[in-house]
Simulated scan of single mutants.
Amino acid sequence: MPDRRPIALVTGASSGIGEALARRFAAGGHDLVLVARRAEPLRALADALTAAHGVRAWAVPVDLAQPDAPSVLATAMRRARRPIDVLVNCAGVVQVGRFAETPAARHRELVDLNVGALTSMLAHFVPPMLRRGHGRVLNVASIAAFQPVPTLATYAATKAFVLSLTESLAEELHGTGVTATALCPGITATPMLSGAERAHPGLRRLPRLVVGSVDDVAAEGHAACLRGDVVCVPGLLNTATVTAGRALPKWLVRRVGGALSRGLE
């Protein structure tokens, strides 16, 4: 590592898993570039991290759903001479509901942010890491990446893309000093889940046992990223679910997912 404090750029840092990951990296001695749409939560978090850990933290309000946003952000970091050592792609949106009942524009929003923006961020920030010979990437996917999820069809498909891209990228980066990790949490207690529950009250019937802690998810993701693990599935229950899903026939996985989703409608 260079003779300076490393810098982690975290998207989706204003709340949820992104905020928890930012706190983890700050506690570990990283300076932070905090990225999200909402300026005030970012500035409050930046001030809190500086006060708690003595690191520098810059709030950078950006709407990554805009096509040129990753390019503008990368240019701003170069001009500010802030080389990014860790890229955490956590910005994302979810949509719960039947595919045919969801507006086409909403499907496009999910693809643009969850897939397009993440891919563009990688394309802009990974090459400089390779030139320096060191770096870490943490892409936040989901256990939904491992199987089809009725009523989360487009969301699950975007996360499958993130997982596949991360695994391919990890192999391409082997031996370069740069690593890529996919963090695949299960259902996690975040504002995103709360919003989904308001729109679809059936989700409130989920057993609390299956709802993970955002701090636990961030702790496992942070450690996996620094180790250079390729895939991290936090929690024993989620690990067991993923393992079982891979072992069962695809038709059975689809039927089980459909039955569970209908039970929550």
Rank of each mutant, 00 (worst) to 15 (best):
Gly29Ser: 05
Lys159Trp: 09
Gly257Asn: 02
Leu42Met: 06
Arg37Trp: 01
Gly175Glu: 09
Pro41Lys: 01
Val55Asn: 07
His200Val: 07
Trp58Pro: 03
Leu163Arg: 12
Ala145Asn: 12
Asn139Ile: 12
Ala51Val: 12
Glu220Arg: 15
Pro207Lys: 04
Arg246Asp: 09
Val60Leu: 06
Ala247Gln: 05
Ala51Met: 07
Met1Ile: 10
Asp31Gln: 06
Asp63Tyr: 00
Val94Thr: 04
His134Trp: 15
Leu21Trp: 07
Thr176Lys: 08
Gly177Leu: 04
Asp63Phe: 00
Thr243Tyr: 00
Asn139Cys: 09
Val233Glu: 01
Gly177Thr: 07
Ala145Glu: 10
Asp112Gly: 08
Ala153Lys: 05
Val96Gln: 03
Arg246Gln: 14
Ala26Gln: 04
His124Lys: 12
Leu163Phe: 12
Ile17Gly: 03
Leu45Gly: 01
His124Leu: 11
Arg108Asp: 11
Ser15Trp: 01
Val60Met: 04
Gly212Asp: 13
Gly18Asn: 05
Phe99Ile: 06
Glu109Leu: 06
Cys90Pro: 02
Thr119Lys: 10
Leu236Cys: 07
Gly235Pro: 00
Ala117Thr: 15
Phe25Lys: 10
Thr102Tyr: 04
Leu152Asn: 02
Glu220His: 15
Ala104Leu: 05
His124Val: 12
Ala13Lys: 05
Asn114Gly: 09
Val242Arg: 10
Arg136Asp: 09
Leu203Thr: 00
Thr151Tyr: 08
Gly92Asn: 05
Thr179Ser: 15
Arg81Ile: 01
Leu138Gln: 12
Asp63Arg: 10
Asn114Trp: 06
Ala247Trp: 08
Ala123Trp: 14
Val149Phe: 01
Pro6Cys: 13
Thr166Gly: 15
Thr179Asn: 15
Ala39Lys: 04
Asp63Met: 11
Glu265Gly: 01
Ala80Lys: 05
Thr151Trp: 02
Pro2Gln: 14
Met192Lys: 06
Arg198Asn: 13
Ala180Thr: 15
Leu252Asp: 03
Leu21Thr: 03
Ala8Ile: 10
Ala247Tyr: 00
Ser15Lys: 08
Val62Asn: 09
Leu248Glu: 09
Ala57Asp: 01
Asp215Cys: 08
Arg255Pro: 02
Asp63Ser: 12
